[in-house]
Design a protein around this nucleic acid. Structure first.
Length: 716
DNA sequence: CGTTTACGTAGACTG
DNA sequence: TACGTAAACG
């Protein structure tokens, strides 16, 4: 590198374009940062540079896509200039949350409001549907709470009338329009009545405050003089307006992003925000970062070719001085099993060649696209972490525990009350509702604990007495979140033990809660932070020495030495539902681009020639159009060896040729017999898959394919 | 008898 | 995992 060494640490070690962006003076700036072009580095140095220039750290606000990203950037900035410790950072949602706590009273929102996550919102919607009797008995086609919420949320995010959203995204539900409208209205009312706020509300209500209250705006303008926004390509319309509202006349805003990596249109993100930035902020300076520091030239050649076909966006062409490496490899396999085996085989080779597991990732479009591979990896004894699956916070047992804290923080949160009450033996929906009806009459805390002990005899029980005691303890003044969590765990652990067969694992999860709570000094803050950005699923800390399996969405911003992409096939990437819609196809293209640009050294794209489609049986599928359009020379095309192309015997389950692993006894359990599994409990043997896998149907968990070697089944 | 609980089965993208 | 239905509970 030929860059000179400036005296300023904030300008050290940057290339020319980066240094230019970092050291621009006042006024709006748009940084178009190609994949791997040092976007984060640029933001970090910009923060440090501003501080070096004498800008007070607390007057700088850094908005990022995840809280973790903000923390990482600020900690790196601190290394450049210690005063950066005072810089404020977070996500749009966390910012709005803070604003609502502080100024929410102006919208008649009490400061102890509860933030609803997705499943919470579904519960509320479900309650509304029941209460308003929107669904006719036995109507199977009536949309589920999840579907209703999807439309409601989509309409809000895209800022459409609900009727339009139905028409556009759920034409098949047109017949239910009135019910959907009523559900949406009831949902809004329920939220208002119980001081509940969902993710969308956080943004819209914060905007409302800023719009309606110039004095708040003024206060914030005096507080934050410089605004930096990361991942601008994934902001939605409200977020873009929030940025404008947060800027005063000087428009000291730096937006950083890559229009080629916009992959959240499905939830309202607008690529247009970044494309329109120069128009919205007159005088904006545009800086393009096109030098890539991540990937080898052959990988960049491919990704450039993929994105070159995109229909709109800032023209840019990434280049690197990283030098050469292997061409991206395209592997066609017969079917999904072949895909899994091809990937396992190659990973094995890479590990043998000295690669570290944490430097290898397997990417895919949808959460379930990796299920077969997961079986294969488990069979081979290759440990992995899966990112983008169920969130820690959404696991039933974690929610159970947290709901106790939530009612302590916000006694009006009847949704959480319901959950808390239904954990008691003998309390189902009806009885819980009856108890809540009494609570509604009571005065807020400490009256709630009292009200619980003053219920009519028919509604009480010894267990409810325990709960009343707990609630009394939780509402004690000056209780720290840590103490509160300990109290709840002491109460909840026995319940968890009774409720779940796999309680050992769940209890281990629960042990994490005190650790999380330790960092907060009041309960309301703790609850809000946990709801807004749940701590990574278990595994995040265990990630060392393991492969990563992740959805492309969750891989955003990350990189690995070796990257595999599963299902580079029509119908998967691009995904089936997108096929009819040109804009959706463009987003799929960007997904392919994001996936491929995660790779540093090697990139392997796998595409089975057929897949199983529910209802249609085995269907042949073509190579993803995004790879088909690309010049031949860019890919190393490889058919997987014959071992991957073994045809499954017709009419039966495919037998897997197994090379490793010792079989003790071929089929130790009779088909149709009962077996017991430590986690899944009692199940019925449905059959075998090859010599090593057994199919068992477990009542609660459905059909499972288990490795005989590891499953530890007991005949029953 | 109304409720709770247990059971069996269909259904799923992406945060 | 979630929902609808059927058995068991009180």
């Amino acid at each position: 590198m030929s860059e000179e060494r400036p005296a300023s640490p904030a300008l050290a070690g940057l290339n020319e374009a980066q240094r230019h962006a970092v050291s621009l003076g006042e006024g709006p700036v748009l940084v178009i940062a190609g994949a791997g072009s040092g976007k984060t580095r640029t933001l970090v140095h910009r923060v440090a540079w501003l501080v070096e220039q004498g800008v007070p750290p607390h007057s700088i606000l850094l908005l990022t896509f995840t809280r973790k990203a903000a923390q990482e950037m600020l900690s790196r900035a601190r290394n450049l200039h210690p005063d950066c410790a005072g810089v404020e950072g977070g996500t749009f949602h966390s910012l709005c949350h803070r604003l609502l706590r502080q100024y929410g009273r102006r919208l008649e929102l009490p400061p102890n409001f509860t933030v609803l996550d997705r499943p919470d919102s579904e519960q509320v919607v479900k309650g509304v549907v029941e209460e308003l009797n929107l669904k006719e008995k036995g109507d199977k086609r009536f949309p589920k709470a999840r579907g209703l919420l999807e439309i409601i949320s989509k309409a809000r995010n895209l800022e459409l009338e609900l009727t339009e959203a139905i028409e556009q995204f759920a034409g098949h539900l047109a017949g239910y329009q009135d019910q959907i409208l009523a559900a949406a209205q009831g949902y809004a009312q329920a939220k208002q009545a119980q001081a509940l706020v969902d993710y969308d509300d956080l943004l819209f209500r914060a905007e409302e405050i800023l719009r309606r209250h110039p004095e708040v705006r003024g206060e914030l303008h005096r507080r934050w003089r410089h605004l930096l926004v990361d991942e601008y390509q994934d902001t939605n319309a409200v977020q873009a307006r929030l940025v404008q509202l947060l800027c005063d006349k000087r428009n000291n805003v730096m937006a950083v992003g890559d229009d080629a990596q916009s992959i959240y249109a499905f939830r309202g993100a607008r690529v247009q925000n970044i494309l329109e930035f120069p128009a919205k902020f007159p005088g904006a300076r545009l800086v393009k970062l096109e030098r890539n520091y991540r990937s080898t030239q052959p990988i960049l050649d491919l990704t450039n070719a993929i994105i070159a076909e995109a229909s709109q966006g800032f023209a840019k062409h990434l280049y690197t001085r990283q030098g050469q490496g292997p061409k991206p490899e395209l592997v066609r396999t017969r079917d999904e099993r072949g895909q899994s085996r091809a990937v396992v085989e190659r990973i094995r080779r890479q590990l043998d060649a000295g690669a570290r597991p944490e430097q290898i990732a397997v990417l895919f479009r949808a959460g379930n696209d990796s299920s077969d591979l997961e079986i294969e990896l488990t069979a081979e004894g290759m440990p992995f972490v899966k990112v983008g699956g169920l969130r820690f916070l959404e696991a039933a047992h974690i929610k159970d525990a947290l709901c106790h804290l939530r009612v302590a923080a916000n006694p009006q949160d009847f949704l959480s009350w319901q959950r808390v009450l239904m954990l008691l033996p003998g309390y189902g929906p009806k009885k819980a509702q009856a108890v809540i009806a009494h609570l509604v009459q009571a005065t807020p805390p400490p009256g709630y604990a009292v009200a619980l002990s003053a219920l009519p005899a028919a509604l009480t029980s010894p267990e409810l007495g325990e709960l009343a005691i707990l609630m009394g303890q939780l509402t004690a003044p000056g209780l720290t979140p840590l103490e509160a969590v300990e109290l709840v765990l002491a109460y909840y652990e026995p319940i968890c033990r009774d409720a779940f067969e796999d309680h050992p694992r769940r209890l281990r999860d629960l042990e994490e809660l005190p650790n999380l709570a330790r960092a907060y000094d009041n309960l309301t803050d703790f609850m809000a932070e946990v709801a807004l950005e749940p701590p990574g699923a278990r595994g995040e800390e265990l990630a060392g020495d393991r492969l990563t399996l992740t959805t492309i969405h969750s891989a955003k911003g990350l990189e690995w030495e070796h990257v595999f992409l599963l299902w580079a096939a029509e119908g998967r990437l691009p995904a089936g539902p997108s096929l009819g819609d040109p804009e959706a196809i463009e987003e799929e293209r960007r997904l392919m681009y994001v996936a491929c640009t995660r790779a540093r050294q090697s990139l392997t794209l796998v595409a089975p020639r057929e897949y199983y489609l529910r209802g249609q049986g085995v269907t042949p599928v073509g190579l993803s159009r995004f790879l088909d359009q690309v010049a031949d020379g860019l890919l190393q095309k490889e058919a997987a060896g014959p071992v991957f192309d073994v045809a499954p015997p017709l009419g039966g389950l495919p037998a897997i040729p197994s090379s490793r692993g010792s079989q003790r006894q071929a089929r130790p359990f009779p088909v149709g017999g009962q077996v017991r599994h430590a986690t899944f409990g009692l199940g019925k043997v449905m059959g075998y898959q090859g010599e090593r896998k057994i199919l068992v149907h477990f009542g609660r968990y459905g059909l499972k394919i288990l490795m005989l070697q590891f499953a530890n089944l007991q005949a029953e």
